[in-house]
Amino acid sequence: MADRSGFLTTSINSIANWARYQSSWGATFGLACCAIEMMHTGAAHNDLARFGMEVFRASPRQADLMIVAGRVSQKMAPVLRQVYDQMPEPKWVISMGACASSGGMFNNYALVQGVDQVVPVDVYVPGCPPGPQSLMHAILTLHEGIKSGEFVRV
């Protein structure tokens, strides 16, 4: 894709991606246990502000990263999709924890078996719940992807 573009567009793209990864703001989508670890990641001890991410926006209109933190029930899935649709492009999704990624240990009538059936996911984080370090690793992975243009959907 990049090969066919001209010099100017690729340069603008790389500048835009540089800006995007430096300040990807998260939408608070705390659902369950993982949300508590997400709070811990943002608080003083782990200090997510080091990566330009200390702001978690309450409104999806101001966010470009959705961290799905916790199990997604079938009742919640339409809500999740609506919040995702309300986020402006370009946007990314981190599926935090085993439940969000695959339903975890709850393979039953109530849960969506993986949030990737509802929204496209960029990074999956393993763990139940993933510690702050795991989440930060996922965020840095995402930043790498955004920087290189790998994760930008057009």
């Binding site: 990624s101 695959s102 339903g103 393979n107 039953n108 009538y109 109530a110 078996q113 993986g114 990737d116 059936q117 496209p120 996911v121 999956y124 992975t141 790498e144 992807g145 790998e150």
Partner: peptide
């Protein structure tokens, strides 16, 4: 008499390698 309702898990976009 209602089953647990488990479904097979499918990961999407698993071929994406960074």
């Amino acid at each position: 008499d209602t089953a647990v309702g488990s479904v097979p898990i499918q990961f999407r976009n698993t071929n994406k390698v960074l």
